[in-house]
Amino acid sequence: MRKFKETVIEKGLQASALVTIAVTVGIILVLSIEAILFFKEVSIIDFLTDTQWTPLYTDKHFGIITLLSGTLLTSFIAIIFAVPVGLSISIYISEYAPRSFRKTIKPALELLAAVPTVVYGFFALTVVTPFLQTFIPGLAGFNSLSAGLVMGIMIIPFVSSLSEDALHAVPNSLREAAYGMGSTKLQNAFRVLVPAASSGIIVSIILAISRAIGETMIVAIAAGQQPRLTIDPTVPVETITAYIVQVSLGDVQHGSLEYRTIFAAGITLFIFTFLLNTVSYKIRKKFREKYE
């Protein structure tokens, strides 16, 4: 009897765990079924090579590159800002700051990631853009620069926290070797610790990129809704995520081509983040084995 009860419980717990597999399968099925229906009407060649994205107009074009360029541009700006700052923070905290400081500052920094992104969007639109406009006269009201920078602020803790963990995990004997040779803390950090912790740092950067690519509200609010193939950070663009929001806010018939565009856009986004997450998972596994 007791055995039977134990088995039932185990099966129940297992079923709960399997829900996570169902979620993944569900996401992949939903995205691919709608995307396949989409590609029945739009050639995949056009999708990948067209340089315009106008599904909501009468002259329809479906060049995903246009949206992708918006996503990559805003993410690039965020990363260019967040990685040097985040990495500097991690080095400062793990090598320079007193131990007690580390304990208080890490949760404080993580607060940056806890702020809802719609709030950051408001920040970008109403504070950062007007501020930047005072010395970049041509800056449009919607632009990828302030959206990217604010997104950068949001992802700082992703970079700093994981990188700091990686630096912290480097054996102390290497620090002693470097100091024993007369290194300054800076030389120790950049010549010894950062290379030794490189896999962990790379993981943190990949996760930050993945986060930036999938970020929605900041770019939907502050970067605009004008699909445009450009690398100019001062003009409005539209990201994949912002497009999905734009369509969702409107009245689009289920089963229409417009409806399916958001799944085609979604699967593109999913593939990118999936690849990034998989790579980071692989590196992390290897890295864990290295130190244990």
Binding site: S173, E176, A177, A178, G180, V192, P195, A196
Partner: peptide, 8 residues
């Protein structure tokens, strides 16, 4: 040092 600690 006690344990050899070459840089990687």
């Amino acid at each position: 040092f006690q344990k050899p600690n070459p840089f990687p």
